[in-house]
């Protein structure tokens, strides 16, 4: 809170990514303000997921510079970036299927311990983390599923578990890749409420198809088309932008 709020937590400067000469993202710049919910939207193939992968370091950029909290992360590895405080979610819900919900959250909490390589130390010591893990499961409303294997959870609950696991790391920047993809209405509302809730203390950058979610949640929206920025601003501003309307014709009313 005391940090200068005008300094962006994430900054992309003239970032490009080409695959075999084809530019998926071209000369793209973006500032994400600390404490905001920022959404990246755009029609299919606009480069949203590529940008997402560039920021989380899953893909290296062809050119340009990416910085997080003022640190140049252009050449860092995905796990390094995660340790700096940027944690991503996945389009397909990412949980550890054979572990229980409680154990899933504990895997994240284990990162703050120094015994990750202690092959001689009984896993029973991890029960120290149960209280915190249960509290996190409670926050996302799946406390009663604590001892259910992740593979047996209903889809929406699995998504919630993923968010609980992500929150366990207390990330400063939460990267959400289509958080409501493949969900029914009831689940969508629950996840939207969840995102709103967690965003109170941190920054969220999300890629999302569902425009009503975006309208409801985001402080700021960047609209992409063909790997370039089409418009940026609040929902009211971008939704009235003629270029955006044009790009979305046909896809908005699907």
């Amino acid at each position: 809170m005391s940090a200068p709020s005008d300094e962006p937590i994430l900054r992309l400067e003239n970032v490009s990514k080409s695959f075999f000469g084809f530019y998926a993202v071209r000369d793209f710049s973006l500032d994400v303000r600390r404490g905001s919910i920022h959404a990246l939207i755009g029609p299919n193939g606009a480069g949203k997921t590529t940008i997402f992968n560039l920021v989380t370091k899953t893909l290296p950029p062809t050119s340009g510079r990416i910085s997080f909290k003022g640190i140049d992360i252009t050449k860092r590895s995905p796990s390094e970036v995660a340790r700096l405080g940027m944690v991503r979610s996945f389009q397909i819900s990412a949980v550890f299927a054979s572990l229980t919900a409680l154990e899933n959250v504990r895997v994240a909490l284990q990162r703050f311990r120094s015994d990750g390589f202690a092959f001689w130390k009984s896993a029973d010591v991890l029960h120290d983390l149960d209280e915190r893990a249960l509290a996190l499961l409670h926050d996302v409303g799946i406390e009663s599923y604590a001892h259910v294997r992740a593979s047996e959870l209903p889809y929406g609950r699995r998504r919630a578990l993923e968010i609980a696991t992500t929150l366990a790391l207390e990330p400063e920047l939460l990267m959400l890749d289509e958080p409501t993809a493949g969900m029914g209405h009831e689940d969508v509302d629950r996840i939207a409420a969840l995102i709103k809730n967690v965003a109170r203390e941190r920054t969220v950058l999300m890629v999302e198809h569902n425009l009503s979610i975006v309208a409801d949640l985001s402080d700021r929206i960047t609209v992409l088309a063909r790997g370039e920025r089409l418009a940026e601003g609040s929902y009211d501003v971008v939704s009235k932008d003629p270029a955006v309307i044009e790009a979305y014709v046909g896809s908005e009313h699907e």
Partner: peptide, 9 residues
């Protein structure tokens, strides 16, 4: 072990 748990993950 604590290590084994991470391996499973």
């Amino acid at each position: 072990s604590t290590f084994g748990q991470l391996l499973r993950a």
